[in-house]
Design a protein around this nucleic acid. Structure first.
Lengths: 116, 116
DNA sequence: GGAAAATGCAACCGGTTAGTTGCATTTTCC
DNA sequence: GGAAAATGCAACTAACCGGTTGCATTTTCC
């Protein structure tokens, strides 16, 4: 069977943006901090990081540009929260690559069976 | 229950490298072309792409640096093949983030139940 | 009202990246 | 042996990135 491996490569341009946004350890740490669904201010997020608050702000903008994170004003502070949708998208992309790979293994297997 | 969401954030520095390597649409296209397990030469991989062969070569080096791709000499050409291990690693990272998120949903659910 | 907290804005810097072009080297194959 | 194919090497460029610093603005709270 292995009928799941059919299919077009997903919309790669979109996925590349999300991957690029995740391709920095500081930004990954921010994603970690927000992965529990909490909403945190810039000051909270930059506490404990070695870089300046402004650097964190820039990283948050990059994450927002990839829709990984959403903003919300709350008085004098700005709260950030994770949006799991784009990450779910890249997971689908990775699953697609994995399925392609598995299909190749399955193909090799039938090859071997045919020779036996 | 929801005991699966326990845990440390994975080795992020490693994951960031792989994400960064995937964070370019040309490189993602190369991964697509190799996702079926085939081995292809630089000339084959650069055919059909808008950029020069040299640009493709550089991208392949980046992918190789992240161990996403392996090289192999074959006469006058150089064959590239996908190595699924690093991609599997980032998938584990994404799964971890998703689990964190799901655990938060479960927490909210029990909250609501407690109020009912 | 005024200090302090949280953030915004803007300029600047050094390093990296994505890309090009030109030419040399290696391998094939007639 | 020699042309053509496949790749390697090197220099160069423009743009972007991650980071900093200095100062202004907005909001809180006593």
């Amino acid at each position: 069977m292995t009928a799941t491996a059919r299919a077009r490569p997903p919309r790669t341009a979109q996925a590349a943006n999300v991957f690029a946004a995740l391709g920095d350890s500081t930004r990954l740490a921010l994603v970690n901090a927000l992965s529990d669904g909490s909403r945190r201010s810039i000051a909270q997020l930059s506490a404990g990081h070695p870089v300046s608050r402004q650097a964190i702000t820039k990283h948050l903008r990059v994450l927002e540009g990839a829709r990984i994170v959403r903003q919300e004003r709350a008085g004098r502070e700005r709260l950030f929260a994770l949006d799991p949708a784009p990450i779910e998208d890249v997971r689908r992309y990775i699953d697609w690559v994995s399925r392609q790979w598995d299909a190749r293994l399955a193909r090799l297997r039938t090859l071997v069976e045919a020779q036996a």
